[in-house]
Amino acid sequence: MVDQDDRLTRVFGALADPTRRDMVARLAAGDATVSELAAPYDVSLQAVSKHLKVLEEAGLVRRSRDAQRRPVHLDAEVFDLMTKWIERYRQQAEERYRRLDQVLARMQGKDSPTDEQRHEGAAG
């Protein structure tokens, strides 16, 4: 678990920078070279390479060689790790809200709302 937590720390740290988040979003559309990634920014290729190194160390991207071209690929596996982490806390928050709904319903002298009643109230 410590290794997984350390990896999540690196991933979220890498994504804390808006330029790196933008690069990841662009790579979601397909592979790109460093030059292609650098095009929309007013920064040097060296600066873009440093951003890519952070993303690579976090496990978000990897580089390969295709003849003279060195494309950068998004590594989707790490997004599964992030999604599982986020989902665990989303489920915990939903459970707390369900318990709060029950407490509020009892305070108002009502029975605990069913899931159907809760959805009707949210939709209406």
Results as ranks from 00 to 15, higher is better:
Phe12Leu: 05
Asp22Phe: 03
Ala93Val: 08
Ala47Asn: 10
Ala76Leu: 10
Val54Asp: 04
Asp75His: 02
Leu15Met: 12
Leu15Ile: 04
Asp31His: 13
Val48Trp: 09
Arg99Asp: 11
Glu87Pro: 01
Tyr89Arg: 11
Ala58Trp: 03
Lys50Val: 14
Arg106Lys: 15
Ala93Met: 11
Arg118Met: 08
Gly121Cys: 03
Gly121Arg: 11
Glu56Leu: 01
Phe12Ala: 03
Asp6Asn: 08
Asp101Phe: 08
Ala93Asn: 01
Leu8Val: 04
Ala122Ile: 06
Ser35Arg: 15
Pro113Trp: 05
Glu94Ala: 15
Val43Asp: 14
Arg10Trp: 03
Ala32Tyr: 04
Ala123Asp: 07
Asp75Phe: 07
Pro113Glu: 05
Ala76Val: 11
Arg21Pro: 07
Gln108His: 11
Gly59Cys: 03
Gly109Phe: 10
Pro71Leu: 12
Tyr89Trp: 14
Asp111Asn: 09
Ala16Arg: 10
Leu100Ala: 10
Glu77Tyr: 01
Val103Ile: 11
Met107Leu: 15
Arg99Ala: 08
Arg106Glu: 12
Val2His: 12
Asp75Ile: 02
Arg90Asp: 11
Asp66Arg: 14
Gly121Glu: 10
Ala39Cys: 01
Asp22Met: 11
Leu37Glu: 05
Trp85Asp: 07
Arg99Gly: 00
Ser64Gln: 12
Thr33Ala: 13
Pro18Leu: 03
Arg99Trp: 12
Ala28Trp: 03
Thr83Gly: 01
Lys84Asp: 12
Ala47Ile: 07
Leu55Glu: 01
Arg21Cys: 15
Gln68Cys: 06
Arg106Thr: 04
Arg90Lys: 06
Ala67Glu: 12
Glu116Gly: 06
Lys84Asn: 09
Thr83His: 03
Glu94Tyr: 14
Leu104Gly: 06
Gly13Phe: 04
Arg106Ser: 07
Gly121Asp: 09
Ala32Glu: 12
Phe79Ser: 00
Ala58Tyr: 04
Pro18Gln: 03
Phe79Trp: 00
Glu56Gln: 10
His119Asn: 08
Val78Ser: 04
Arg90Ser: 05
Val43Pro: 01
Gln117Glu: 15
Met107His: 10
Gly121Pro: 07
Val54Met: 09
Arg88His: 12
Val11Tyr: 00
Ala105Leu: 06
Arg69Met: 10
Pro18Asn: 05
